[in-house]
Amino acid sequence: MLRFLGQRAAMGLLTIFVTTIAVTLLIHLVPGDPVEIMYAQSQGTTPEQLEAMRSSLGLDQPIPVQYVHFLGRLLQGDLGVTIRGQQPVAQLLMQRLPNTLALAALAMVIATVIGMPLGFLAAYKRGTLIDGVLMVTAIAGISIPHFWLGLLLLFWLAVDLGILPVAGSGPLNIVLPALTLGLSNAAIVARMTRSAMIDVMSQDFIRTAHAKGLPKGKVLRRHVLRAGLVPVVTVMGLQFAFMMGGAIVVENIFAWNGIGRLALEAIFQRDYPVIQGFILVFATTVVVVMLALDAVYALLDPRIRRS
């Protein structure tokens, strides 16, 4: 199991390493002069000021040197300062990150709590009307754009019924974005759970369990569920990454102060240090969460746990 986790951790480190390179190169892939683009919106900057900025960003040096500098600063937790306002990027992102994590985690819980039991039920009732209704709902669910669903929920629950706040950062404000994200992903979780469980139900060892004369409920709880959880957990990591991606969109609908909202503003303002920092933080978060889920997976599957 340590070997398995070691491999995964190495892969995660590699991913983060590649991200740092990508992030350094990113600014050079921008068509045109990034410094001019960044300052295009502020009036009356002189060529001298531009040159000063260029050297303060280190852009006048060869790329490898820039990268080493970047890496050096990164190890000290320094991601540079924003173009507008000269605030430290790392601090800004770290302030916002908990909001995004809370949103993604709550959404994940909602998706799992709704999706897993329904998927399991559909698998158990395979071929019946219940299964049919559930699966039609699920495929409709994965087809509804989450930004549309978010708007509909917003106007219905917040504007029309007024039971939830429209926007802001109070404790109740997380409900709508989390519900939006959770509901759209519940459909995916349900489909996945169903196919994993059906896969398990057709396995030989389930026939063995029946041949032993175990009651149906016991076969389901002990054999199907325990074995079916393994493949479901393996895709949970991807699900979380998906939630993080979805959060970017949803945060902007509900003005939820996460890193996604920050990133969007930065993209519009061409604030490259923020974008760079965002990408790095996002990728690192995903890597860490995936690694944690790999550990859960390793614990669930004895073939890995005991190797």
Binding site: D204, R207, H210, K212, P215, H223, R226, P302
Partner: peptide
């Protein structure tokens, strides 16, 4: 189903062809 279940395993046992897949991999 219930009556059949009390026969299965208790009065009639069954062994299958594939030993590699006939046991649940996640249970001891």
């Amino acid at each position: 189903e219930a009556a059949l279940r009390s026969v299965r395993g208790a009065r009639i046992g069954m062994i299958f062809q594939e030993p590699m897949t006939s046991l649940n991999p996640v249970l001891t």
